[in-house]
């Protein structure tokens, strides 16, 4: 039985609108699973022994669990808000820890160097102080008042703007980002990173978006997000060690890494250690 405390979480395993007609084999927490379409056209997910696993179809994806989830999937109220376009970005397989993929998503300081001239550019590299907390009532990591200068914040952006961000981590391998919507500055665009842990050192990343953008084509919005993630992948597959170190001392954070520090602390507190390194090697 893999995954420890992470076994009872929900994980994305497919796009709901693109179920595999002939079925597809995959992995979850190192164990084989099979995703198929049932007689009614709905999704059916089974484990290696043929046991039917619980599923939820929400936020464009099919979610499943190997354990007994005590809670419903985390809420994203904006998903039901009128006027948003819901974008199934697709999946990208990455040879990295699922936790490293989430931590990178929470990081803004890399924008000028990894997403050069898109999400950031020199000399606009400074990360101003922002606020981070673990919200005990909902048991989520939150970062707010995050600001960053961006040359092209989204497909819909015309020129550089200072974008405001909020980050949420509601489950160990999922994160939700709220950022200033270029066409509607009073609203937040929602960009998520849903990560399926295949093994401790490989994952399938399923980004999903709920955007205010009436002009860009679906293809353009998908390509924009995929381009960003492929840039991230060149980092994620070259970090040493592959596992995310949870013990202090193995890596040196700064003030810009407050979200990552809180995320690591929250993972450790809950025993969410699939994909983590606990004893400094």
């Amino acid at each position: 039985m893999n995954g420890g405390a992470m076994r009872d979480q929900w994980y994305p395993v497919a796009i709901a609108a693109q179920l595999p007609q002939k079925g597809r084999d995959s992995l979850l927490l190192g164990e084989p699973i099979h995703i198929a379409t049932d007689e009614t056209g709905g999704a059916r997910v089974t484990d290696g022994a043929g046991r039917i696993l619980p599923i939820i179809s929400r936020y464009g994806h099919i979610w499943t669990s190997l354990g007994q989830p005590e809670q419903d999937l985390f809420p994203i109220p904006e998903a039901d808000q009128p006027g948003r376009r819901l974008v199934d970005v697709g999946s990208v397989k990455v040879r990295c820890s699922p936790l490293r993929a989430v931590e990178n998503f929470l990081d803004i300081a890399h924008f000028p160097f990894v997403h050069t001239d898109i999400l950031g550019s020199e000399p606009h590299t400074e990360v101003e102080r922002y606020e981070v907390e673990i919200r005990d009532d909902v048991d989520e990591v939150w970062a707010t008042k995050v600001k960053f200068y961006q040359p092209q914040a989204a497909k819909s952006a015309q020129g550089g703007i200072t974008t405001e961000y909020m980050y949420r981590v509601p489950s160990p391998t999922c994160s939700i980002l709220y950022k200033t919507s270029p066409p509607r500055p009073g609203e937040w665009d929602v960009i998520t990173l849903f990560v399926q842990p295949l093994t401790e050192e490989t994952c399938e990343v399923w980004p999903w978006m709920a955007l205010f953008d009436d002009d860009s084509s679906m293809t353009d919005m998908i390509h924009f997000q995929q381009m960003i993630f492929v840039q991230d992948r060149s980092i994620l597959e070259n970090q040493i060690p592959a596992l995310l170190p949870l013990d202090p001392g193995k890596e040196i954070p700064t003030r810009a890494d407050m979200t990552s520090i809180a995320y690591r602390r929250w993972l450790k507190r809950h025993g969410y250690t699939y994909g983590a390194q606990l004893v400094a090697a």
Binding site: I235, N238, Q239, I240, P241, P245, E251, I252, P253, T254
Partner: peptide, 8 residues
């Protein structure tokens, strides 16, 4: 290895 986040 960068001591910050382990990047090559």
């Amino acid at each position: 290895r960068c001591p910050h986040r382990g990047m090559r």
